[in-house]
Amino acid sequence: MKKYLFAVLLPIIILFAGGCGQESTKLKVGMLPIADNLPFWVAEQKGYFKEEGIEVELIAFPSALERDSAFTAKQIDAGIGDLIAVATMNNAGTKVKSVAVAQGISPGENRFAILAAPNSDIKSVEQLKNVPIAMSLNTINEYITDRMLTEKGLSQEDIKKIAVPKLPVRFDALMGGTVMAATLPDPMATLAEIGGAHLIADNSKNTLAQTVVIVRQETLDKNDIDIEKLMKAYSRAVSDIQRNPDQFNDILMEEAKIPKNLLSSGNQLRFIYSAPELPKEEDVDAVIEWMLEHDLLKNKLTYDDMVYGKVL
């Protein structure tokens, strides 16, 4: 009788025990055509997701707006964005957190530059006083511009801005002299310099322009173990990139649309990747304060509202 009961109950015990742990599901990661995402593309190519025991789908989005809308619609679990995106989504009711810094851990990563038009006489920060600078407003673009220029002596009142959110339009306006100055990320910044634009300031000696790995809070609550595995695969890919960055130029050209001549012609443009780490509290606080000053937040967020520290 005891043997019979054990045989009957054993499958139920196994089923119950299996249900007590977190259930592994496919993770959907939103991908923009930017170099920041290279470790995810490399991890997919190398089979690291499968080796870590997770199923990952990389879903392409043409813009940050569409990626963030996918977060809100619960269509993706993770993606790379910036701390302003994390705060903006939380402010609007979409609970997400940063689990790691992607780009911007070391100076030189995720370069942005303020440039003057090739046909202008502007060569210094002082000459930018009251000159409209083309940028994407209420974004990391504006945050970096404010920080770089105020640190070099301009007051907030001295900095004039003009909204040109679409990057190709902004690039063309700068190069054609329709605007006298613009803030551009690489590779557009390097392309502009090659085309004769004057470099006024960039963030190559600081870590202002950080991007972070963003994950929906619901996914973390249900399945942070798989997010931990996702970041292990990501970290393995970063190690591969650090050992030989040039071997992944084909991926950058295909997925991030980086022009071949920028990656091969004397290595004019080189992307740097560091092992992921948590955002520093002072960096998060600086973003929150800037957003409050620009009336971009209803309520002041805290570090714990923005960062999840249990994955790395």
Rank of each mutant, 00 (worst) to 15 (best):
K26A: 13
V99I: 15
Q268Y: 08
A78T: 03
I241D: 07
A173T: 01
M175H: 06
L83V: 01
G309Y: 13
D158L: 01
D305W: 04
E277Q: 15
M253W: 05
I133F: 07
I80M: 03
G81I: 04
F112Y: 13
S136A: 11
N90K: 06
L199A: 10
V99N: 03
S274C: 08
R67D: 05
L9N: 06
K205A: 14
E293C: 02
V101Y: 09
R243N: 13
L128F: 00
T211A: 01
A233R: 03
A134P: 00
S264R: 14
Q127A: 12
L115K: 10
V131T: 11
P107A: 02
E66P: 08
S264M: 13
L174M: 13
T145V: 02
I272H: 15
I272G: 13
K257T: 12
L297V: 10
M175T: 11
Y4L: 15
E55C: 12
V29A: 05
I76G: 11
F112W: 09
S136W: 09
E289P: 08
I288M: 11
T183S: 14
E57D: 08
G18V: 09
G79C: 06
V179R: 05
P168Y: 13
I272A: 14
I272M: 15
V96W: 07
I251V: 10
F61T: 01
V212I: 12
E289I: 11
W290Y: 14
D36H: 04
A87P: 08
P259W: 12
P165Y: 09
G177E: 01
P185G: 00
M291E: 06
I241R: 09
I34Q: 12
G195N: 14
A17K: 13
T88G: 12
I251S: 02
Y234P: 00
S98N: 05
L199Y: 04
I59G: 14
L208N: 03
G108L: 06
M231Q: 10
N203P: 04
M175Y: 08
L167N: 05
L174Y: 12
L184E: 06
N249K: 08
I258A: 01
K152H: 11
A209M: 01
W290H: 09
P11V: 11
P107H: 06
P165S: 01
N130I: 09
G108Y: 07
V287G: 03
A163D: 12
M31I: 15
K152I: 01
K161S: 01
E157I: 07
D295P: 13
A192S: 07
K160C: 01
V29N: 03
T88A: 13
Q217W: 05
Y4S: 12
V238W: 02
T178P: 04
M253I: 14
V125Q: 10
V86R: 00
H198M: 03
D77Y: 07
E157M: 10
A189E: 00
L208P: 03
I80K: 04
V164H: 05
P168K: 14
H294K: 15
F16Q: 12
A35G: 05
S98M: 02
I140D: 06
V56Y: 11
G47E: 09
N141I: 03
K160Q: 10
